[in-house]
């Protein structure tokens, strides 16, 4: 029981940054924009969150600053891709390269310092319920944000007029434009939302998951988040399931390493990446499912004719 609880807790912790970043990217991709810069926005969130929390002693300020930096990176991406109609693939890659470099530069003086973890929620009585209490009612603020975000995005995309409009833009930006919808404005907002989420994910890494800063600490999680969106075939609930599945895989390999299973540790640590590939293959085999859900304008530039 104790061990199960401990494992479940770590799985939740490992899954939360993936869930945050993937939920944001899902909205971006639903609007027809492919932002491959998740990794770069996430690492900027990680360094920004850590540095701000370290300097002010307030982890909540750190989280806010992480969101701000994530959005600043997203704005840069949006300006190039939406206003300048640059190639989305290459621009996303550039954003990742820039983010990794910039974060390494900013965080250089902070390597090895102890980070400041935001306090866990504690509701007297409820958080004391055995098992369920600590599992669900005693977590950090970002866990609750991640769950709320999934619910909010589901509601927004499938229950509001603006959500419908956003999905319409993602499916056919020319028709949406012809109907008088502000394609570029919607996309800016979606991209900024994605940046905010990636910033939150980064803050989770450097404040909650491992409260410290180290270079390249995102370790490809931004890319796994991108894969999760494909895996989830652009549905928020499936992103939730996928994130927890991946959390379980990465925690499972850590436990296997700790027990000392006679497999090289490198093979185990490669597992999340191999699992990503396998899952992508399985999903893409089902062409019908992919065809129905893929936003048809995904990755294509749009220049409004006036």
């Amino acid at each position: 029981m104790e061990l199960t609880l401990a494992i479940l807790l770590t799985i939740i912790t490992a899954a939360t940054p993936l869930l945050l970043a993937a939920t944001g990217e899902l909205v971006v991709e639903r609007s027809g924009v492919l932002n491959l810069g998740v990794e770069g926005m996430m690492i900027m969130g990680a360094v920004g969150g850590f540095v701000m929390a370290y300097l002010t002693g307030n982890p909540l300020l750190g989280i806010a600053f992480a969101v701000l930096l994530g959005m600043a990176m997203a704005l840069l991406f949006g300006f190039l891709v939406l206003t300048f109609a640059t190639n989305q693939y290459a621009t996303g890659l550039a954003l990742t390269i820039l983010g990794l470099g910039l974060a390494a530069l900013i965080g250089e003086g902070f390597v090895g310092r102890a980070g400041i973890r935001p306090p866990n929620l504690y509701i007297p009585g409820i958080s004391d319920i055995p098992f369920i209490g600590p599992l669900l009612f005693g977590r950090d603020v970002l866990f609750y944000i991640s769950i709320t975000l999934v619910a909010g995005v589901m509601w927004f995309l499938f229950r509001t007029r603006q959500g419908l409009t956003l999905r319409a833009i993602g499916d056919n930006h020319h028709s949406a434009h012809a109907l008088g919808i502000k394609v570029i404005r919607y996309r800016y907002l979606a991209v900024l939302f994605g940046g905010a989420c990636a910033g939150l994910a980064g803050a989770h890494l450097s404040l909650v998951y491992t409260p410290q800063w180290s270079e390249n600490m995102t370790a490809g999680r931004g890319w796994i988040a991108l894969a999760l969106v494909v895996f989830a075939s652009w549905r928020p609930l499936r992103v939730l399931a996928g994130a927890y599945l991946f959390g379980a895989v990465s925690i499972g390999q850590l436990h296997a390493q700790a027990i000392g299973i006679a497999i090289p540790s490198q093979a185990l640590s490669a597992l999340p990446y191999v699992a990503t590939i396998i899952v992508l293959v399985i999903i893409s085999q089902n062409r019908r499912l992919t065809m129905i859900n893929t936003p048809a304008s995904l990755g294509k530039s749009f220049v409004p004719d006036r």
């Binding site: 909010g152 927004f156 979606a190």
Partner: peptide, 13 residues
């Protein structure tokens, strides 16, 4: 534009 902002985005900020 502030009217049209997705509610989810507001929550994140």
């Amino acid at each position: 534009s502030s009217e049209q902002q997705p509610p989810a985005a507001e929550r994140a900020v």
